[in-house]
Computed example of a mutant assay.
Amino acid sequence: MRFIPTRFHGILDYIYGPLLIISPWLFGFSDVSYATWTAVVIGIALTALTVMTDYEVGIIKKIPMQTHLMLDFGAGVILALTPWMFGFADAVYTPHLIFGIFAILASLTTHRIPSESYRREHAQEERAR
Rank of each mutant, 00 (worst) to 15 (best):
R2D: 09
I4Q: 02
I4Y: 03
P5M: 05
P5A: 09
P5K: 13
F8C: 03
F8E: 08
H9M: 09
G10C: 08
D13E: 11
Y14W: 05
Y16K: 03
G17V: 01
P18D: 00
L19N: 04
L26A: 12
L26N: 02
L26M: 11
D31V: 10
D31F: 13
D31S: 15
D31G: 14
Y34K: 11
A35R: 02
A39E: 04
V41K: 06
V41H: 01
I42Y: 03
I42E: 01
G43N: 07
I44A: 10
T47D: 00
L49N: 10
L49W: 09
M52N: 14
T53S: 13
Y55T: 08
Y55P: 01
Y55G: 13
I59H: 05
I60Q: 08
I60C: 07
K61Q: 12
K61C: 08
K62Q: 12
K62G: 01
I63G: 05
I63C: 09
M65L: 13
M65D: 04
L69N: 09
L69P: 05
L71M: 14
F73E: 09
G74P: 08
A75Y: 05
G76R: 07
V77S: 09
L79I: 03
A80T: 08
P83Y: 04
W84G: 11
W84C: 11
M85H: 08
G87H: 08
G87W: 06
F88P: 00
A89P: 03
V92T: 04
T94W: 11
H96I: 04
F99V: 03
G100K: 03
I101S: 09
I101T: 10
F102W: 12
A103H: 07
A106E: 11
A106R: 11
T109D: 11
T110A: 10
R112G: 15
S115M: 06
S115D: 11
R120E: 14
Q124K: 14
Q124M: 13
Q124A: 15
E125H: 12
R129S: 07
R129A: 10
